[in-house]
Structure formats: structure tokens, C-alpha cells
Design a protein around this nucleic acid. Sequence first.
DNA 1: AAATTATGACTGACTAGTCAGTCATAGTCA
DNA 2: TGACTATGACTGACTAGTCAGTCATAATTT
Lengths: 223, 223
Amino acid sequence: MRTSAKRKPRGTTDGGQGKRAGQGADRRAQILVAALDEFSLHGFEATRLDDVAKRAHVAKGTIYLYFKDKESLFQELLRAQIGPVIGMLEAVLAGGTKEKKPVPLRELAHRVADLFVEQVIGTRRKDIVRLILTEGPRFPKLAEFYYREVISRGLSAFRARAKRAVNEGELKSDTLVRFPHLIVAPALVSIIWKSMFDKFEPLDVKALMKAQIDILFDKEERP
Amino acid sequence: MRTSAKRKPRGTTDGGQGKRAGQGADRRAQILVAALDEFSLHGFEATRLDDVAKRAHVAKGTIYLYFKDKESLFQELLRAQIGPVIGMLEAVLAGGTKEKKPVPLRELAHRVADLFVEQVIGTRRKDIVRLILTEGPRFPKLAEFYYREVISRGLSAFRARAKRAVNEGELKSDTLVRFPHLIVAPALVSIIWKSMFDKFEPLDVKALMKAQIDILFDKEERP
DNA sequence: AAATTATGACTGACTAGTCAGTCATAGTCA
DNA sequence: TGACTATGACTGACTAGTCAGTCATAATTT
């Protein structure tokens, strides 16, 4: 259809990369890593697939061999990163339910906080969470998925556990049953602070999380 | 390709910018309102100035009579909306400092929370805050401005006041001196919740704020 | 009439997505 | 082993479309 005027004689942008670098699954991973970099740097709209390709040392067309379109790439990136953490979170929360002599809720809260500090704040996943906060309202499907899979589950698991803590006397008020959000609040502040203000005034996330938990549990003790 | 009848002969890369915005304060306001709608609906990148113009019942060119470019429009919008609230916030916080018999910090906290609920959550300004959270990392100038003018001031004002509360015995621990962020945390959660999850599960922001304050102040009483 | 304000067609720069063509490697046969 | 063919991963020039910003001209005000 198109009379191709001229074909470049193998215009390899040299640089020691001239040949097929990896195969199959490698490429996918390469592209996902590059996509994480670019998306978390510029957001969904402003990210150019040309740049993702460049960063992955791959031609733009290659991206379309592994992902349907820009949006699919974006969604798969988020899910791939969030999935594992949901698993870990469930493991931690379950840890407090199965046993007869249950782990105190307070201890659970600390474990969740540690998980958050290590697996989210301490990794690129903090950028993923930011991306979800940032782009969520513009991707209703994403917001809904995230609510169903993470928020709703996490909250109700925590709520159930908090109810028990109230009945067993560990908690004096039902505040945490009504507002499990309060456990998450300092985590959100941390993510936003890290991405916007940390260079002006660094924030000790672990200490912040600990402070909130201590307050929520009436400052009984402080290991 | 466009086949057009005839056109002017593309010339004069003049650059003369001799324009004054003297009278049309109406137009400016119209445009700002429309811009708020579009920006908070789609974010900075994805907002089309054509749509802003349409919504403001104005031609696109008119926007450029009142604003230098898209970014200026965006920044002025944010500042115009945030400015007044900073004023109110300072007034509230000052109210606790000038008097001899000072307002208890706890009371101040409640006033700030009310201010937030009424002036931010209850208005379009919640969208503005969201926009700042969303676009902040991509506009370093904005993040810095916001840190200097709002965050840093607010935190240190609150910190000073909290120190006093510790000395005077109102607060038993120095947690709030170290982490004034904890006052802001539920506010952030509220904004994000409202914009993403409120349709799935509405959140009572006022009660959430109150719960956190009660907890921070050792649940002494609950009006 | 002159100055000011408004308009919207137009341009230039930019980009998601496509597809004809390339080539490293695997498989087949003598 | 060497020659020849088949495969499909990979490439990047190209298409079709978008949109910020401009400017000649029109409308309105002074």
C-alpha cells in the first residue's frame, strides 16, 4: 500500500546491544520495569511509549507484542506489583485469627506497619501506590478493582479482628471498629510526603506508624 | 491532510505581547471556574483547553488574553483557591496564641478540623487539594511553593503550640510535637476516600476527624 | 475613529498504534 | 557437517489523529 521510500540499512543504534538480547518472558519483564520507571515519573497520560521502549532497549512495536495497548501495560504493571503484597497482608492478618491464643491486635498492627515500611515504602511499590492514588479517579475500573480486592477486604478483615479485641478487652473503645481507616492514615501521609516533601524535610515513616499505633492502643507500652 | 480554501500567509513571528487584563474580571472568573471543572475531572495533562473554553462559553483565544499558558492557568487556579484557606487557618491558629488564657490545643484541633470539613471537604476545594497531591510531583515548583507556604508554616505553627501544650500539661506525650502529621493524616485519607471510594462506602469525615482528635488527646471527653 | 476585547480557523509539534520487512536461530535433509 | 528453509521475535518508518498556542479579523466599547 505504501511505497516505502527508503529502508534504512539496519539502523542499529549500536552500543553493544546489536542482537536479540533476551527471549520471551525476559522482554515482558524488561518492558514492565521500564514502564514502572516512566509511569511513576510522569503519570499515565504524559508517559510516551517511545520512552518506555527506549528505556527497555526495545523497539516500540515490541511493546505491542506483549501488551494490547498503553492502558493494558499500565494495568498489568499495577496488578503485578500489588498482587504479592495482598498475599502477604492476608498472611499477616490470618496469623492473628487461626490460633487459639491469638496474637494481640496491637502486635498485628505493628506487623502490618512493618510490612508496609518494608514492602511498600522501602521499594518501588510506593510509586505504584502513588500511581493508584493519582490515576484512580481517571480509571474507574482500577478504583473499583482496588476497592474490591484490597481496601474492602483489608478493612473488613481488620474490622472483624478489632471487634474481637473490643470484646476481649484489648481495646477500650470501638473507634477502630468504626474507623479502621485510622490505621491506614499515617501510611498514606507517608507515601505522599515521601513523594513531595521528603527532600525538604525527611520523614521517619517507621516512627510515624509506631506513634499512631501506640496512640490508638492507649500507649500501654513501647518496646 | 487538510484541504482548506485559502489561508493567510503565515508570517510575523512577532511575539509582541502587549495585552492588559483590565476590566474583564468576569471572564477571568468564568474561565477559572471552567478550568476547575475540567482539571479536577481529568487532571492537568489530559485537560483540553478547547473544553475549558467551551465550558466557559468563550473562545479558546480568549483564555490567552487572561492567562499566559495552560500551566499559568493551572497554577493561578490552585493559588486562588488555596489562598483564602491559608488565611482562615492562620486566623484559627493565631486565635490560640494571642490570648493570655489560651484556647486549649484540643479545642484548636477541633476548630481546624471543622474548618477542613466546611471549607475543603464541603467545597470544590477538595478537588483542588487532590489536584495538588496528584500533580505535585510533576510540578516541582508547585510542590515547593505548597511546602513553603502551607505545609512548613502550618506544621511549625502547630508544633510550637503543641510544645506549649506539653509544657502546660495538656498533652502527656510529645508525640504531636514530633509528628504533627498525625493531625493531617485523617484529612488526607478523607480526600482520597471521597474521590475514589465514597460511592462504594460513604465516609463520615467529620466523625473520622473527631475520632482521631479524641484519640490523640487521650479521650478525655467527647462533646 | 481608535482602542480594546473576543473569536475560531489554522499551524506545528507531538504520539499511540500499525505493519511490511528483517534476521537470528531452529529444524530438515543429504 | 554444511546448505537450505521455516519461523516468529523484533524493528522503526509511517498513518491518522490530537491539541497547545497563534493571529488575522470581527465585535464592542470608549
